[in-house]
Amino acid sequence: MSTFEIKTHRIGKTYTQPHFFILNKGLNSGKPLKNPCPNCFVITTPSEDDKNTLFHLSMMLLINGNYQYYLKGSVIPFIAIKDVKNLIQKNSIWLNEIELQKKIETIKKVEILEISFKNKLKVIHDLKMALLRSCKLEY
């Protein structure tokens, strides 16, 4: 696994290298994001493949609950940048495993399917709303 760099994202900053963001405050701390938000870290990588692999590794760590262990704070929980970096580095040794690569490819296919279903649900919701509005109910 090649190297990656993690920094605190500053609003308005643009990045030229392949990158993604990780939420660092709240109960969803550790959630990988494609678009920035005010409370996030940015991970930059030398290649697009490394970015995608680390994005999915981070998603697996979130779903598995690995980030929850490192949450600090009582009112608004947060995760420290060194904890995120150490957790990703520690688990990136598994990225060379062929079985994990197959699982990441399967997860990518499931994500595409999930987007398709969300789009279909939105169309169904819009159709339902149009039908309800055409009923001309009185106030």
Rank of each mutant, 00 (worst) to 15 (best):
H125K: 15
D50L: 04
L62T: 09
I6E: 11
I22S: 00
S58H: 06
K51H: 02
M129L: 12
G30M: 12
Q89L: 14
I112L: 11
K122Q: 13
K85I: 02
L87M: 11
K108Y: 00
N66T: 09
L57S: 06
K90R: 07
K102A: 13
E5Q: 14
H125A: 05
F20S: 14
A130C: 08
I88S: 03
L27S: 08
K51M: 10
T45E: 00
I11W: 06
I124W: 09
K34G: 06
P38F: 07
L132Y: 13
P38L: 11
L61I: 06
P36Q: 03
F4D: 02
Y70A: 05
M59R: 13
S29N: 02
V123K: 07
G26Q: 00
F20H: 08
E111N: 09
H125R: 14
K13M: 13
L61M: 12
E138S: 10
E99P: 03
K103M: 10
K31V: 01
C37W: 04
F21Q: 15
K31A: 03
E97S: 12
I124A: 07
Q68C: 02
M129Q: 11
Q101I: 10
E138P: 07
I79S: 04
F78S: 03
F20A: 08
T3W: 05
T53N: 03
N91Y: 11
G12N: 15
L127N: 13
I115M: 05
K82L: 00
F78M: 08
Q68R: 15
A130W: 07
I43F: 05
K13V: 15
V75W: 07
K109V: 00
N52M: 13
L127W: 08
P77V: 02
K136C: 04
E138F: 11
G26E: 00
L27G: 10
E97M: 11
I104G: 03
T3E: 06
S116Y: 07
D50S: 10
P46N: 05
T106I: 11
T106G: 01
K31Y: 11
T3S: 13
I98Q: 12
I79F: 09
H9N: 12
F117D: 01
I112K: 15
D126E: 15
V84P: 01
I63F: 08
N35I: 06
P77Y: 03
K72G: 02
K13S: 13
P46Q: 03
T14W: 14
N28H: 04
S92T: 06
I6M: 05
A80I: 09
I63M: 13
N39A: 02
